[in-house]
Design a protein around this nucleic acid. Structure first.
Length: 228
DNA sequence: GCGACAG
DNA sequence: ATCTTGTCGC
């Protein structure tokens, strides 16, 4: 596809940045995002994105999951060397390239993107999901297994669907969300073109265990290829 | 200076 | 993320 080359070139630019350039990029990115309403129907197709590593090789996977049929419609993978180190707050500069590369063979349409990482629950409101959403120009949000930034406000109930807001100053930047009864929560925050309520609803609709299905499948796929 | 710190 | 065995709990 023609679009794909453009996305990939944007991804290349990110990994070639210095940390100070990366920081400046994020401070600009935060003003380029919009958190509009996304129509969450019961037959949306969700693209799950995840990365695994073996030595310095990144293995990324993209999985299109049908919420209506609860099945995988298509998968695609990539494997490439990474040059940007892991630095908390700068994960995007390490993972955007392998993730975009993994989209190469995705031909079916998808409505929303779920990324393994933070959206605006980030010190500069510019986590991995924001970068992906900005490049793809698709509704995108992040779902992480642990916290990067923000204070958890109030008590989190034990039942599926209960959540506590993640805040910074007086701003809500995401939620700590229980995806199943009595399991440790996940961290959901918006990336671009979607609002927090929509992101929470989608996460709950596709969670049949602690990790939402699109990410669980993408994680399994990238780990399998991280071997061979 | 000290602690925190997505994957 | 990854390196790693057995083990506690639903």
């Amino acid at each position: 596809m023609e679009k794909y080359e453009f996305f990939y070139q944007e991804a290349i630019k990110l990994e070639l940045m210095s940390v100070s350039e990366a920081k400046e990029f994020q401070n600009n990115l935060r003003n380029m995002l919009n958190f509009c309403n996304f129509d969450v129907s019961n037959d949306i197709k969700i693209l799950g994105l995840d990365v695994s590593y073996k030595n310095n090789l990144a293995k990324a996977s993209a999985v299109v999951f049908s919420l209506k049929y609860k099945e995988v419609l298509q998968t695609s993978i990539s494997r490439c060397a990474v040059r940007f180190p892991y630095i908390p707050g700068f994960l995007a500069f390490r993972e955007v390239k392998p993730l975009i590369a993994a989209l190469r063979d995705i031909t079916v349409d998808f409505d929303v993107v779920m990324v393994d990482g933070q959206g605006i629950a980030h010190p500069r409101r510019a986590g991995l999901a924001c970068h992906i959403g900005y490049i793809l120009k698709k509704p995108t949000f992040g779902c992480a297994k642990s916290r990067l930034f923000g204070k958890e406000l109030g008590e989190l109930g034990p039942k599926k669907g209960s959540f506590a807001r993640l805040v910074d100053k007086n701003e809500t930047i995401g939620v700590v969300l229980r995806t199943q009864d009595n399991v440790s929560p996940v961290y959901v925050s918006v990336g671009n073109m979607i609002n927090l309520t929509n992101a929470i609803e989608i996460t709950l609709k596709c969670s049949f265990s602690r990790i939402p299905e699109p990410l669980k499948i993408a994680d399994k796929l990238s780990k399998i290829m991280a071997e061979a």
